[in-house]
Amino acid sequence: MTSAIDTQGLTKRYGRRSALSGCTLSIPAGKVVGLVGPNGAGKTTLLHLAVGLLEPSAGRIEVLGHRPAESSEQLARVGFVAQNTPLYASMTVGDHLRLGGWVNPTWDEDLALERVEHLGLDVSQKAGTLSGGQRAQLALTLAVAKRPELLVLDEPVASLDPLARREFLQSLMSIVAEHGVSVILSSHLVSDLERVCDYLVVLVASRVLVAGEIEELLASHHRLTGPRRDGLHLPPDWEIIEETVTERQCALLVRHESPVHDPAWTVEQLDLEDLVLAYMGREATDGHKQGRTLVGAHS
């Protein structure tokens, strides 16, 4: 099966500044992928590279097995909702649906109309007067009605109020359930993505820190608390993500392959947010010393 997104050393530079450095990823199709990272980490750059709005300075990217935007067929296979959901302000909702049909041979008009009706959007309303939530829903409708295999959404809920955010994610998930489309969406908040994603990519300061199935990530990362012991011998497959040592106690956040047997350790589950924050914290403190890119094992 072809990957949804496959990159090798993908790099985008603007002059001397790197927006994305040596990004190597292999995201299987059929996933809902969360792309998390602070603002300015390179999320938008990565997504723009995936939809062909940008071209790499170095490295390689393939989306659904092809170079992004290499042909109109390839453009048709990927639906994109850009940040702040740009729409033609002076055109009505109905105009947008019509233009979607004009520029997409794979346009599913029934789907578009059904969604607009379901959302309660007025087709004669100008897009410029829609609320943030309605804009996002209309933009999503445009992206979905071209019946893509992959949906790419850049910070789709960042500017929405909690209710609109929930409604948007409900829409998105019902689309995934109905059409089996792969999705990659970015956010600077893990909490936005926790429930909807099954694959996570953490991007900080233009680098991929960790990527993998959320379930595997949660199964392989734990917080361990134990008495302080100097000259600690840790199993070779442990990687310490975060370490807090007090006089008596030692708390570690580790990534490990084998189960933890040592009874001296109290093992605690992590939630996704803890995990992501630990990686971000590590990048902030000693990212330059350690191996910075740690890419999850993928099937």
């Binding site: 939809v51 709005l53 935007a69 109109s72 067929e73 453009l75 850009a82 740009p86 033609y88 794979t106």
Partner: peptide
Amino acid sequence: ETGTFRLAWTQSVSR
């Protein structure tokens, strides 16, 4: 200016 080129360039028409 309005960012709509990102909408236009990701439809099934080459830029």
